[in-house]
Amino acid sequence: MASGQLGTVATQLLLEVKHLYSRNSYLSDDLLSALQDVFGTSLLASLDIVDRKGVTHVTCPSGRHLYLVVGSSGRLYTCLPSGLYCPCSFFTYATLMRGESLVCKHVLAVQLSQAMGTFQHLTVSDEELVGLLMNKDTAQ
């Protein structure tokens, strides 16, 4: 079997999210159920982040952009738009080391927000964005 089948399924489901949401502005229970099956426990927390509009798309004049996700404790996590990485410890342990979970809730929240287009926008200066990238642990 080819590797990454779960990723393929996840991608397709997110496309379904995008499609359904753009058309009807809701997510069906079926779709949520399928997402739950693939993403596991991260989904609930991610949806909560999405509900609370906890994903912010940060852009700067130079064109570089990233996502800031508000964690449950109010901490901000910097997620890159094209990559699947999150500085949170769940990602380190459960996703990277143990491979138990496909993504952490922050990355999933970014993915869902992207699919639904429900993130907030923030424009910062180039320097500020660099600051976010360089100093992401203390970014508030």
């Binding site: 990454g4 990723g7 993130f119």
Partner: peptide, 10 residues
Amino acid sequence: NLFPAGTSTG
């Protein structure tokens, strides 16, 4: 590549 959905930005 880990997660191809990552490429489809909003």
